[in-house]
Design a binder for these strands. Sequence first.
DNA 1: CGGTCGCTTGACGGGCTTCAAATAGCGTGG
DNA 2: CCACGCTATTTGAAGCCCGTCAAGCGACCG
Lengths: 203, 203
Amino acid sequence: MQRLRPEQSVFHEGDPAKRVFMVTHGALKLYTLLADGRRQITGFMFPGDFLGVSVDQEYAFTVEALEETELWWFSRDAFDRFIAEHPQVERELYRLAAHELAEAQRQMVLLGRKAAAERLASFFLSLLERAERASGLPERTFDLPMSRIDIADYLGLTKETVSRMLAHLRSRGLIRLQAQDRVEVLDRDGLRSMAQGESVGLA
Amino acid sequence: MQRLRPEQSVFHEGDPAKRVFMVTHGALKLYTLLADGRRQITGFMFPGDFLGVSVDQEYAFTVEALEETELWWFSRDAFDRFIAEHPQVERELYRLAAHELAEAQRQMVLLGRKAAAERLASFFLSLLERAERASGLPERTFDLPMSRIDIADYLGLTKETVSRMLAHLRSRGLIRLQAQDRVEVLDRDGLRSMAQGESVGLA
DNA sequence: CGGTCGCTTGACGGGCTTCAAATAGCGTGG
DNA sequence: CCACGCTATTTGAAGCCCGTCAAGCGACCG
């Protein structure tokens, strides 16, 4: 078990991947830095998510807590022994990796081809869906445990553009800010159509 | 075994993931489309690569041949049976997924944070490294089996910008075009420093 | 209630896209 | 083998979206 305060890191990019984690409370960000300080957040983690599982030798990113966070961890050796004794788990991990990969691909589409407003709308929709998966109920609101800069670094934008797009979504009546860090979705379909595209499936 | 002509597709996004493939000759592109036709290529595949392995139920992208291509395939059922009989293979597949995931993360950094010239330089370096892995020897040249539009859709740019950045790299003396579809690297270090950043590893 | 820090808003500029046209490469058929 | 024609690629000009720089505002905490 490990407790983290905001800003504290779990591990850094390049560290040997000696542990496997499960998030029990809180929220985390995963990121990589370029030499000149540019940063790309490659994902956020929430309770129930696994960390450092689909990793090969070294961690490929840095992980840092966004808020008070609690993790369960195992040494990779113990984890590997456990898997060896429970082969059906391996299949499950495999599914997990496939899911992560699909998510990464969706993010590539977002970063490569979507406009700023579309990116923010897509992000909000996925946070809403996550909130629903967590509670098991339909939801109209969700929290934003991360800063505007974090959102920007996740969406490949700047904090100013995030702010402006937020204003844009608000003025279009799609969302409302119950607080700086809490979003209420007023028009889910509108948000979806702003998020655009979503793959059509056909060539 | 399956043979494909250029432009022929192996499967489409949303198809049930009934098969697993290995590339033996040729080259392929993986992509998703947005409703209005915008396209993001999420990867290219070359001999030795596996296709449709880390996939959950449905394929998450369309795959299309860039040139004359040959694939070996297995039904997913047969593949799963094979894995069940050879548990050590599962571990290997796992490693494969981890590697794919790391690559996806690098692409997110490229799409989210790199400038056009940096993207093209990064792409060329990775093609050069792939050519070296394929031959097992140091290389100074590599092929471009894909069109400028494909490159653009992979890098999140337009074909015009790709052309201009190509001219830029040429004028800086970093590369030379032996043909439209064959690149010679004249200054690998220069290319590397243009590709920028590569993660610094430290926070 | 005041200070600090994060967020928002505004003005401006730049890098990439868009639209358009010229050129080059390449397969085809004579 | 060469000429032709088609398409991909390159090059040019103009515009726009988002980034940058700067200032103002607002929220939260002590």
